[in-house]
Simulated assay, not measured.
Amino acid sequence: MGTTSPHRRRVSNWNCPERLFTKPLSKHSTGLKPTAMSTNLTTGPLVGQVVLITGSESGIGRETARAFCQLGAAVVLNGRQAERLECTRQALAAEGYRVAACVADVTNYADCEHLVAMALNRFGRLDVLITNASISQRAYFADMQPEVFRQVLDSNVYGSVYPLKAALPHLIARQGSVTFISSISALNGMPSGSAYCAGKAALANLAHTLRLELAATGVHFGVVHIGFTQNDPDKRVLDAAGQPVPIAHRPPRWQKSQAQVAAIILKHVRRRRRRTIISALGRLILVVHSLLPRLGDWVVLTSQRRMRNFYE
């Protein structure tokens, strides 16, 4: 749900050449060189705003970047696969949008400092931060290697904490907006997703705490709980040993398109909402978990027995 795999993948979008990305990110990567983009789009309600979206080289992050660009914002793209990230940047630039891109591992604080510095150097300000980059899993807790659990958890927690920590002074200066991308699985837990659910649930409490601590700054802190979403064909998550595997089966009728999810994220940010839950299923989970938690657990356990491919 809205996750980005750190492993090598084949490009199948944006008319990019198919090739494997095998070059690892250096500890102090300088990222892609910012390049002047087309400035054809000079009108729109977000003209002058600068948006940084982590994990925006593909998937939901890429479509969210496009949604903000369409309203006139300048967008800083981020990812760990340099060639794929550059391909996305070129595609958006070709549509006339103001974009820049920077390779950075958001679980590395030095990389996050560089990412924010590049955004400021390129566009002079920072108004919106959306922390979308994360890793998901497809493994039961009892089978997971400890280091895999930590990798998934770190990507979801520190992958939001570190970019925010680096960007916070600049967001305070603009009375800006921060949105953490979470999941409906954080609302009630999900078998085979222990580390992912724990990390996504942590973001909701983090946002609540920051609203209290930084209430006087005027910065908006929000959380979007994403439901089942159509994924890029090469999307991968981690198994118990840390190997990339396809995500578990999701009935197509339950899934929203990436563009639909991006539009909801855009509306959430513009309205400075505290929480947005995407999909009727997500809202039902919240109600049942709050009022009838045992019933909610019974439904999940029953589905686990009858729909094993939904989890495994």
Rank of each mutant, 00 (worst) to 15 (best):
G79Y: 00
R8T: 06
S12L: 06
V50G: 05
N156G: 10
A166I: 04
G296Q: 08
R273K: 15
Q145A: 12
D111I: 02
R66Q: 08
N231R: 14
R236M: 02
L32V: 07
V269I: 03
E86Y: 07
D143G: 11
C102T: 10
Q175T: 04
M1C: 10
D154Q: 01
A167V: 09
V300H: 14
A204C: 08
Q81G: 11
V288I: 13
E86W: 04
L301E: 12
P146E: 00
L292I: 13
K235I: 08
Q175Y: 02
L291A: 11
T302S: 14
L126E: 05
L52P: 14
W298A: 13
S58C: 08
L281P: 15
A91E: 07
E63L: 11
P34W: 03
M307H: 15
G96E: 09
Q230T: 13
A204Q: 08
A100C: 12
S194R: 00
C69S: 15
G31W: 06
H220C: 14
L164P: 04
L32A: 04
T43N: 11
I130E: 00
S56F: 05
R211C: 10
V300R: 12
V99P: 15
Q255D: 11
V116M: 08
Q70R: 05
P146I: 03
K256W: 14
R275W: 12
Q304P: 08
A262C: 10
I226D: 01
A167C: 11
G79L: 02
S38P: 12
A133S: 12
L115W: 11
Y162D: 07
V287A: 14
A204L: 09
I135L: 14
G242P: 11
S177N: 10
E147T: 11
Y97R: 07
H28T: 10
I278N: 03
R283Q: 12
M307Q: 13
T302Q: 10
T276S: 05
T88Y: 02
H289Q: 15
L203W: 05
V103E: 05
V269W: 00
T217D: 07
A36V: 10
H28W: 04
F141H: 03
S160F: 01
R150M: 10
Q243F: 09
I278T: 06
S12F: 09
L203Q: 03
G199Q: 05
L284A: 11
E312D: 12
S182I: 00
R273L: 15
M1W: 03
F123P: 06
C87W: 07
P251W: 04
R150N: 14
H249S: 15
L286N: 13
P246H: 03
L71C: 15
N15K: 02
D154C: 01
H28C: 06
F68M: 05
I264H: 02
L41R: 13
A73M: 08
K23W: 09
G189K: 01
I285N: 01
G96K: 05
P251D: 03
D111C: 08
T39S: 11
T22D: 05
A186F: 10
D105F: 04
G189R: 00
Q230F: 13
A73P: 13
A100M: 05
Q230G: 09
Y97P: 13
R138Q: 07
A36P: 14
V224L: 02
L291H: 09
L295Q: 04
A67I: 08
R250I: 14
D105Y: 01
P252L: 09
L115V: 09
